[in-house]
Computed example of a mutant assay.
Amino acid sequence: MTETVTCTVEDRVCRLTLNRPDKLNALNLAVFKEIAAHLDGLDHEAVNCLILSGAGRSFCAGHDLDDLASGEESGAEAERFENGLVERLATLPFPVVAKVRGHCYTGGLELVLAADIIVAAETTKFADTHAKFDLVPIWGLSQRLPRRVGLAKAKEMMFSSRTYSGVEAAAMGLANSAVPDEELDGYVDALCADIARNSARSNREIKKLLVDTDGLNLAAGNAWELHHSPGHGPEFQAMIAARRPQKGG
C-alpha cells in the first residue's frame, strides 16, 4: 500500500512529503494521522530543519471534498485532532520550510501557514476558498493568515476566494520568496543546507523566543529576551575557532 505521506531524514534535514499526487495531495483524516505517526517517530535531535512539500505537480489542493461531503471528516474529535496537528507542525522546535508548487488551496494553505519559511514557485496558485463552499476555517487560517499578510489582505483573500500567484504571494509577504519553477528544488535544498549547518541549539532557542514573545509589545518582548535568552552555548568557542584562519607552520 502506498504511503500517503513519506518522511526521510538525510544530512539533518527531514523531508515530510504529502504523497497523493493523483488527488493533488488533498487532505483527509487519514493523511493527518499519517503525518502525526511520522512526527511521533521522528528523532528531534537528528533534525535541524524540516522541508514540507507535496509529491507531483501540486503542494495541496485543499481538504478532500469527497471525504468531507461523505461526513467521514465531520465531528468535533476529528476537527480538534486536525487543528492540533497543524499547531504541532507550527511549534516543532526546529525551523520548518514549506516548498510550494502548483496548487496551494484552502486546507493546503492552512497547512503551509504552519511553516516558518514559505518558498513558492512563481506559478504557484494560492487561494482560500472556504467561502466558495460555505465553509469556515477550523485549522487556524483566521489566525495565521492575518499574522502573515496583515488583516486587510487576509480579508481580501478569504472573502473573495481569489487566486494569487507565487509572485503575488511573495509581494504580500505570504511567501518569503518566489523562484522560477525549475529552480524551486535547488533553492530550497540550498536554504535548508544553510540552516542545517548552523547551530541547532541557536535556531531552536531563537524559534522559542519568537513563539514566546508573539503578541508582546516591544518593551515587554525586549525584557523577555533579556531575561530568557540562554545566550551563547557550548559550541561557541569551537565554532569561533573554526572560522579563524589557520597560521602557517
Results as ranks from 00 to 15, higher is better:
Ala127Asn: 09
Asp128Cys: 12
Val136Ser: 01
Ile138His: 12
Ile138Tyr: 12
Asp116Val: 01
Thr129His: 02
Leu111Asn: 08
Asp116Lys: 06
Thr123Arg: 12
Lys132Trp: 00
Ile117Phe: 01
Val136His: 08
Ala115Gly: 02
Glu122Leu: 06
Thr124Arg: 02
Phe126Leu: 12
Leu111Pro: 07
Lys132Cys: 08
Val119Asn: 07
Phe126Lys: 09
Phe126Val: 14
Val136Glu: 03
His130Phe: 08
Thr129Pro: 01
Lys125Arg: 10
Ile118Asn: 03
Ala121Thr: 01
Leu109Ser: 11
Lys125Met: 05
Phe133Gly: 13
Asp128Leu: 05
Val119His: 05
Val119Pro: 02
Pro137Thr: 15
Leu109Trp: 09
Leu135Gly: 11
Ala120Met: 01
Gly140Ile: 14
Asp134Lys: 02
Glu122Trp: 02
Val112Gly: 04
Ala131Thr: 10
Ala127Asp: 12
Leu113Thr: 04
Ile118Lys: 13
Leu109Phe: 06
Asp116Cys: 03
Ile118His: 07
Thr124Cys: 11
Ile117Gly: 07
Asp116Asn: 11
Leu109Pro: 14
Lys132Ser: 14
Asp128His: 09
Glu110Leu: 00
Lys132Ile: 02
Thr129Gln: 13
Glu110Met: 07
Trp139Gln: 14
Trp139Val: 00
Leu135Ala: 11
His130Arg: 06
Leu135Pro: 07
Ala121Ser: 15
Phe126Tyr: 10
Phe126Asp: 12
Val119Gly: 06
Ala120Lys: 03
Leu113Gly: 03
Leu113Asp: 05
Asp128Pro: 10
Ala121Val: 00
Ala127Ile: 00
Thr123His: 13
Gly140Asp: 14
Trp139Gly: 04
Lys125Phe: 00
Trp139Asp: 06
Leu113Cys: 09
His130Asn: 14
Thr123Pro: 09
Ala115Ile: 13
Thr124Asn: 05
Ala127Ser: 13
His130Ser: 13
Asp134Gly: 05
Lys132Glu: 12
Ala115Val: 13
Trp139Asn: 12
Ala114Pro: 05
Asp134Ile: 01
Gly108Met: 03
Ala131Met: 02
Leu109Tyr: 11
Val112Arg: 04
Leu111Glu: 11
Ala121Phe: 00
Leu111Val: 02
Ala120Ile: 01
Ala115Arg: 01
Thr129Leu: 12
Asp116Pro: 11
Thr124Trp: 01
Ile138Asp: 13
Pro137Leu: 03
Asp128Ser: 14
Ile138Trp: 06
Phe126Trp: 07
Thr123Trp: 09
